[in-house]
């Protein structure tokens, strides 16, 4: 029973890490394909959640069941988990700050644009 549980945890964690690799590549492609500043913030989020928070959680789970790591497994698991939480809270704060700063300083226009209800002059 315990072996089955460990096997399930192993596969879940490996799936999360693989998802992280895939998401990072897609986010990089998105960053290249979207030419506007505001559009590029969206692939950035993919890289934050699926590309960083999920694989860090996967590493955290994987290290708990890796006996080879000895006493260090708890440190690695704990550090990965807390790092995932910190990224989860700080990454959007960074995105808000950058987006707000760029919009306020009028550095980039919203393009393409259906509407900009914050500042109509920056639309298009």
């Amino acid at each position: 029973m315990l072996d089955l549980f460990i096997l399930i945890i192993r596969y879940i964690s490996l799936a999360l890490i693989t998802l992280g690799g895939f998401a990072s590549v897609v986010a990089a492609i998105g960053f290249y394909r979207f030419k506007n500043f505001y559009l590029r913030l969206h692939p950035l989020t993919i890289n934050t959640i699926w590309g960083c928070v999920f694989p860090l959680t996967g590493i955290s789970l994987l290290t708990i069941i890796l006996e080879e790591l000895g006493a260090y497994k708890w440190f690695m698991a704990g550090a990965s988990f807390i790092t995932a939480l910190i990224v989860l809270m700080l990454a959007p704060a960074g995105s808000h700050a950058i987006a707000r700063g760029v919009h306020k300083s009028r550095t980039a226009r919203v393009k393409p644009c259906i509407a900009d209800l914050l500042d109509k002059d920056l639309c298009g």
Binding site: A23, I29, G30, F34, L39, P43
Partner: peptide
Amino acid sequence: VIKRILHPKAPVNPAIV
């Protein structure tokens, strides 16, 4: 968003709402 990124035309319809 992944679908939009990988789509050949990268369809977007953006606005600040």
